[in-house]
Nucleic acid binder design. Sequence first.
DNA 1: CATCATGTCTATCGATATAGTCGAGAAGTA
DNA 2: TACTTCTCGACTATATCGATAGACATGATG
Lengths: 148, 148
Amino acid sequence: MLSQKCQYALRAVFELSKSYGAGPVKIGSVAGAQDIPQRFLEVILAELKRGGFLESRRGSDGGYTLVRSPQTLTVGEIIRFVEGPIGPVECVTGKPADGCRLYPGCAFLGMWRRVQDAVAGVYDTTTFGDLLESEAKAAGEFVPSYAI
Amino acid sequence: MLSQKCQYALRAVFELSKSYGAGPVKIGSVAGAQDIPQRFLEVILAELKRGGFLESRRGSDGGYTLVRSPQTLTVGEIIRFVEGPIGPVECVTGKPADGCRLYPGCAFLGMWRRVQDAVAGVYDTTTFGDLLESEAKAAGEFVPSYAI
DNA sequence: CATCATGTCTATCGATATAGTCGAGAAGTA
DNA sequence: TACTTCTCGACTATATCGATAGACATGATG
């Protein structure tokens, strides 16, 4: 399960993707649009900036800007930055010998790797550009039932 | 990331799979073979018993027995019992409206479901019988480097 | 029946992570 | 100057995790 913080980070980057190339977006605006506690979001955006994903400006007309194009920025990059390595168990995320006394003969290792590959495969092939498309498509398909 | 407890549970069931049909296995024996703190394992095995996965006998010659054949028992069943539903976020594990103000138009929903399907796909198609085979195979391939 | 070996139950504990808040300050803009 | 916005560091409450402890129940054995 991804942490709430990580989900907020993804939603924030997604929101900034919408305004890519259109000037800075204020924290309050992102918080409102994505339903994120503002003071918490401040912390998160500052981290993402330090990670090189965002730029910022202060003062009125200030706000945050996405550095790279949503078309090339993947969900996996953000998740790894916020959460650390992706994977179901420590044996396959970093130093494998770490405590696993059963390594490398462990019967579960193959399964863990299959899960890891499957998950990382999805996250690393999904860009924020893709997500923008998804949302546009969903909005297009959505037919409000105003008709009786 | 799966909890330590869940990994212990899987290793314990795996260990019991080895003795399926061959009488009860003591807690201490499982704990030793799989490197699990015994008092913690007691708690875990008791839960698995309550879940209907194991049977037990007390006294000397006592211990735990796997109820179903390793060939039909999947890893997914154990994980769900110990951890609850499988999935990267709450939106796709149970009641979806739970707080997600953006549901059902959420741009991430499709991705979450792809991840969930991929993960559950692996866990639900891996039986403890498969794991026994993996281990046997790994043991066969393992060539200790005694040769100079 | 006494005894020993084993599982069973309930409670507790310390450490860590999570989710979030707060106040003061720095840097832009008008 | 005054206002707006980001920035920084500290802080806190709560929950969960991983694990342990003690008392008890039950079965086998002699």
